[in-house]
Amino acid sequence: MKTVIDAHNISKTFNPETIPVLAVDKVHLHLERGEFTALVGPSGSGKTTLLNLIGGLDKPDTGNILINGVDITLLSANALIDFRLHNIGFVFQSFNLIPVLTAKENVELIMQLQHSKRASIEKRVRALFQEIGLEDKMQTRPAQLSGGQQQRVAVARALAPKPQFVLADEPTANLDSKSAANLLDIMAKLNQEENITFIFSTHDARVIERARRVITLVDGQIHADTAHVETNVAHEGFSTNK
């Protein structure tokens, strides 16, 4: 298996001068291609901070983060932006989409930033909308989409540039349980059929159930790291992780 994320001894303290908050405390994290991993823990345990660090949105105070062999802690701010564009897919908790663009244009935007060819953009975007089951909503503006549909479009956008992994901070937090389940279905399907690597944080027990590996954070430290046996997603060609 190919290593996608290799974070070594990373720590992050906020407000070191005033009231220091040790949000991530000497964490080691190793993720292989094709993983479907949930990051859980109580509020304030450091999930968002950790995801921001491995997503290259923030820099750790100590330690190294290797994504696909590149130490992103050494990259300049500009190089880091470019690295994110080509290597990391993001799904945020809400308001993922640019309101003035249609669903399709939102997904295209990322590939346009990558200077992809018009024809290949067209082909890939169409395929992605098929995957998320929203071919009929391609020309719709985000305001006319439900929260669940918006999150699915966000998943399509995250996948468009063929990233090393997709990172999602509480992607279902603003969804009703049916939409949440539906989003998880799509993510799980992409994971199994296309071997897409996902790491997402969540508080939702039903979402945790779907993960094949669950990392529990407490006070910025990894408290538990367990492999799940799949229970409620039946499919074939499924390989156990790790």
Partner: peptide, 8 residues
């Protein structure tokens, strides 16, 4: 968000 996604 655009910068997070990789827009220079």
């Amino acid at each position: 968000m655009l910068v997070a996604l990789g827009m220079k």
